[in-house]
Write a protein that binds this DNA or RNA. Structure first.
Lengths: 203, 203
DNA sequence: CAATATATATAGTGACCACTATGGAAATGG
DNA sequence: CCATTTCCATAGTGGTCACTATATATATTG
């Protein structure tokens, strides 16, 4: 039987996940540059050294917050891809889950990834590239689903291009979620976007 | 005959438009928060007091830069609406002009308005609202064109919803222009988007 | 208990932020 | 010429930035 040996000194009491949740919400609402460490630690109810004991820099905290967001909300938004074998149902579910997240009530509107660090200085170049990568990854995941459902499309359909069209739809919805924060409007955008998929399907 | 009387003292030498052009490019590339006054005046080749003699604050400079962008690139992007009476040709021109601007060579990629200040703190709330307004205005202008071309649509088409779909397309293209900066990819997104318009047209 | 290791708060670090007071240089009018 | 008016560079202002040195409190092991 494996015994969990506690380490020598005082055990850690900091709830890393709670901290990340608070960080996520603030970064989600205000972006990276506009969110200060002071604001973060105040919202967390801790002092700066406690935060830096868990995350070595603001950058690392942001990356961890993005990871958390990706694992929770990001996963939720893409869950439809594995759920439905029908590619139309799959994408429809994805778009509607996006609306669910983007206009949610108990957290900021919009999307941390879709509109995160689109503008940035060289100083945040690494973070900006990471965010751009995540956006491209999302499109790639959609393209892979399309590829797996190849038989459902009319022959010669440019599947990667179609995927990046839906990526653009999601990113556009993320912007408009910020500006109007209305699920009905976003659903209409989603439906118009879905009609493109409908048109290239084989029946 | 009117004589242009020169004022008493040393005449102004500051080229306001040149300054705004430089400011536009920097804000376009890096966003509002990530661009410092130091960076701006260095790029302009002037000292901070000279800048503040022309613009009373960073906020005002940003607003003026947005105005300049709107009057030049913004006008260019929407020029198709007045140029074509055929709504399909009009929107197609708009989307292609957007690509032209978003992937331009001698300036930053993406769009200053479409992705500007989407994330922001309360401190920049006024600017963020202004940017959101400009995005909504753009959609309204497209909606008005649709309304004017009402007869070209099948009956019962939700024109404002269609306009905000194209708004989302433009905003999505602006994000992807940042991430991949490739006109071919953006043109494919534009074409997919246009197929939605094609579907709701009456022939 | 003593020893150890980690938690935390206080109180700062230098650097940079937007912004400006001051004063001399420069270009005009009289 | 002188007086006037404005431009502009130097050199800062206080404030906030991300981040940390120090000291002490607290919880563990042996």
């Amino acid at each position: 039987m494996e015994m969990e040996k506690a380490p020598r000194g005082r055990p850690r009491r900091l709830d890393k996940d709670k901290i990340l949740e608070i960080a996520s919400v603030l970064f989600w609402q205000q972006g990276y540059e506009a969110t200060s460490i002071n604001e973060l630690v105040t919202a967390m109810g801790i002092a700066p050294p406690s935060l830096y004991a868990a995350f070595s820099s603001k950058e690392e905290l942001y990356l961890a917050a993005i990871d958390r967001y990706s694992a929770s909300y990001g996963r939720q938004m893409l869950s439809g891809l594995a759920l439905h074998s029908c590619v139309y149902e799959a994408i429809r579910t994805v778009l509607y889950e996006c609306v669910e997240v983007f206009v949610g009530g108990d957290h900021p509107s919009g999307c941390m990834i879709a509109t995160g660090l689109v503008e940035s200085s060289n100083a945040q170049g690494a973070l900006a590239r990471k965010l751009a990568d995540l956006r491209q990854q999302t499109i790639k995941i959609i393209a892979d689903k399309f590829k797996a459902c190849e038989t459902q499309f009319v022959e010669g359909t440019d599947l990667p291009a179609l995927a990046s069209f839906f990526g653009a739809t999601i990113q556009g919805m993320a912007v408009q979620a910020r500006d109007v924060n209305c699920p009905t409007e976003l659903h209409k955008i989603a439906e118009h976007s879905l009609s493109v998929l409908q048109a290239s399907r084989r029946f």
